[in-house]
Simulated scan of single mutants.
Amino acid sequence: MMIESFLFYAFAGVAILSALLLVHIRNTARALFLLFVVLFAMAGLYLFALADFIAITQILIYVGGVLILLIFAFMLSNKELLADLQSTSGRFISLPNWQALVLVIAFLSLMVYSYLSWSQQMPQWIAQSEAKGKMILPTDNNIKVLGFKFMTQYVLPFEIISVFLMMTLIGAAHLSRKESNK
């Protein structure tokens, strides 16, 4: 087995195992740590998909920004909030869980169907891009092109992401503030 295959399956296994543990764990501190592991493993998988910019963005925005703010909010929050977050049903499948199970099965069947149909015949849009020579190669300088696109064509979505990060910071500050005794 080549090292690339081993690393891919290691990242995928860590992401899947950590995500499964994340949804079933009751300790909020451990759940935040597992979210940290899931986000890093997903960044590794993005690297294998030749989406280096998305992998770096995943680490900078979600791990470096949102997750750290969640950890600070957890550390500074009061006990009542923690009790509300950790009160869960003892049953394996309750009303919200069966809805999530239906969504997971739907997405899994969509992915299996896509894989089976794409392994037999390449989709039309991929075949056209390959014929025109517009395929993204690993040697292309994608980050420079993305930088130009972000500051020209996609400046509005880029600013929306910055507003999202600001809202996360305000939410973390709101969760961490102390209630006044009246």
Score class of each variant (00 low, 15 high):
Leu17His: 06
Leu17Ile: 14
Leu17Asn: 05
Ser18Ala: 15
Ser18Met: 10
Ser18Leu: 08
Ala19Asn: 09
Ala19Met: 11
Ala19Arg: 06
Ala19Tyr: 10
Leu20Phe: 15
Leu20Gly: 10
Leu20Tyr: 14
Leu20His: 10
Leu20Lys: 07
Leu21Arg: 14
Leu21Cys: 13
Leu21Lys: 13
Val23Asp: 02
Val23His: 09
Val23Gly: 10
Val23Arg: 09
Val23Met: 14
His24Cys: 12
Ile25Asp: 04
Ile25Gly: 05
Ile25Glu: 08
Arg26Ala: 13
Asn27Met: 10
Asn27Glu: 11
Asn27Asp: 15
Thr28Ile: 15
Thr28Asn: 06
Thr28Gly: 05
Thr28Trp: 11
Ala29Arg: 14
Arg30Asn: 07
Arg30Pro: 00
Ala31His: 06
Ala31Gly: 13
Ala31Arg: 13
Leu32Tyr: 05
Leu32Gly: 07
Leu32Pro: 02
Phe33Cys: 07
Phe33Pro: 00
Phe33His: 11
Phe33Ala: 14
Leu34Thr: 02
Leu34Ala: 08
Leu34Asp: 00
Leu35Glu: 07
Phe36Asp: 06
Phe36His: 14
Val37Asn: 01
Val38Gly: 02
Val38Trp: 05
Val38Pro: 01
Leu39Pro: 01
Leu39Phe: 11
Leu39Tyr: 04
Leu39Trp: 06
Leu39Gln: 11
Leu39Asp: 03
Phe40Thr: 01
Phe40Ile: 10
Ala41Leu: 03
Ala41Arg: 00
Ala41Lys: 00
Met42Gln: 03
Ala43Asn: 01
Ala43Trp: 00
Gly44Ala: 09
Gly44Asp: 03
Leu45Ile: 05
Leu45Cys: 03
Tyr46Gly: 00
Tyr46Phe: 13
Tyr46Met: 08
Leu47Val: 08
Leu47Arg: 11
Leu47Cys: 10
Leu47Ile: 10
Leu47Phe: 09
Phe48Gln: 04
Phe48Pro: 02
Phe48Ile: 01
Ala49His: 06
Ala49Ile: 03
Ala49Thr: 03
Leu50Cys: 12
Leu50Arg: 15
Ala51Leu: 13
Ala51Pro: 03
Asp52Thr: 14
Asp52Val: 15
Asp52Met: 13
Phe53Lys: 02
Phe53Thr: 09
Ile54Phe: 09
Ala55Lys: 04
Ile56Arg: 04
Ile56Met: 14
Ile56Glu: 02
Thr57Ser: 15
Thr57His: 08
Thr57Ala: 15
Thr57Tyr: 13
Thr57Met: 15
Gln58Asn: 12
Gln58Ile: 06
Gln58Trp: 05
Ile59Phe: 12
Ile59Arg: 05
Ile59His: 07
Ile59Ala: 14
Ile59Leu: 15
Ile59Glu: 04
Leu60Ser: 12
Leu60Val: 15
Leu60Ile: 14
